[in-house]
Design a protein around this nucleic acid. Structure first.
Lengths: 239, 239
DNA sequence: GCCGATTTGTCCGTATGTATC
DNA sequence: CGATACATACGGACAAATCGG
């Protein structure tokens, strides 16, 4: 486990905040003290603090100190999307049993309209996959995935039934590093209604995302249509 | 304008990418070249690059180079929420005429239920404001704001009719630095329907946010209920 | 109001590690 | 293997904001 120093400090401080060693609204010890405690350089420590600030765990104040702004029960942490996370990882984190049903699996060539929607270049060979994903047997979302065919050799419907991400990462050694997302609300289509038990809702939450692998190549465009009851997206903004 | 070196480089590079000096999928010059061009240290340059990576403008690749992954017409930039942005800033950026109608303005004391929902401490004095916000005369969203009364002295219904943020920032010298958000989809309430012309939709996009000022004090909890047609939230994830 | 101590913010130069070519 | 390029880490310096006497 080759872990960077700043990452170790980051995790340690994060844990201490979560367990209450540093309480909500309290100030962390000054940088000078922490660098001594961790026996590291100021740069390494400051990088860890900066990551905690990105997570909205702390807020540094010029000339004053670093205040903890994380609080437990920050709304329940269940049923929440975070960062770049696959469906399976999400299920595991919430203690639910995931299952997937592949509804469609085909090769397509990227049309002009599709190019505009997805960001793939026109004429590119793509793999189109439609899947319904359930947790504990209840259908929660419909995935419409487009994979760059050249980047996913050996991807089959059987694989898609399991986890595409673990296939890409473990089999092909690909890493997903960056993902651009947009969230909208749309009227449910007949297809949505046939797959999801929408109950009183006539809308779904739609997350479109473009994902880039470690080569800086966009290899996936996904539109995920979520059941409103099974959708909560958390994020932090700073300026 | 006291601007940090890394920020100047960040803006310069960002502009060059947007105007096409560095094209999509192209590699930036290596760090060594860029530090020479900008006459700065490697640290300053790397910080700028790191910010561009956070914006999904570039993707650094170990041992290879830094590739541009931003592309123009990354879906239209209209009608899009970004970062910590007020309604007025958003309207101006999209060339629309904002207007606001205050529906309610009252002092309340934070109850146990409200404390759990908002994250304010029970018993805190709050200012509750309900506003309907329109663009070019069309109602787009209903805001339910709770402000920490002690942090917003002099806030009146008349001020709320204009911009609360510019009041807080310009009058009180407060800065909003960090904001935690969650996005969900909920059934429209009778109130939603009475304010927004929802048409075929029976749902709204709900953005809840907790905002912290420069003192690290949570001074605002907001629940904004958006018309589905007027809602698009963009974000970037990395891991 | 001033001054000095404390604390965070920015910046630099350098060294070493590691992945890619 | 060597050259290139990004990643991590250290130590030192000065600036800027805050606070207390």
């Amino acid at each position: 486990m080759p872990r960077a120093i700043f990452e170790g400090i980051y995790r340690d401080l994060k844990g201490k905040i979560q367990e209450g060693s540093y309480a909500y609204q309290e100030f962390l010890p000054p940088e000078s003290t922490l660098t001594e405690e961790y026996g590291c350089s100021r740069n390494a420590l400051r990088r860890a603090l900066s990551m905690l600030a990105d997570d909205a765990y702390v807020q540094p104040m010029h000339g004053r100190g670093v205040r903890v702004i994380w609080q437990r029960k920050d709304h329940s942490t269940q049923g929440v999307l975070e960062g770049v996370e696959s469906f399976g990882e999400y299920a595991r984190r919430n203690g639910l049993e995931p299952s997937t049903s592949v509804k469609s699996f085909e090769h397509v060539v990227c049309s002009a309209g599709l190019a505009h929607r997805t960001g793939f270049a026109e004429g590119t060979e793509l793999l189109r996959v439609v899947r319904v994903r359930s947790l504990d047997g209840v259908a929660r979302q419909v995935d419409h995935d487009y994979f760059l065919a050249s980047a996913a050799p050996g991807l089959t419907a059987e694989v898609a039934e399991e986890s595409v991400y673990s296939f890409l990462e473990e089999r092909l050694g690909m890493r997903i590093l960056t993902s651009r997302r947009s969230i909208t609300v749309q009227l449910a289509t007949d297809e949505d209604c046939s797959y999801l038990e929408l109950g009183p809702y006539n809308c779904v939450a739609v997350v479109e995302s473009q994902s880039y692998n470690s080569d800086g190549v966009m290899f996936e465009y996904t539109q995920v249509r979520h059941h409103p009851d099974a959708f909560c997206f958390n994020t932090v903004s700073r300026r």
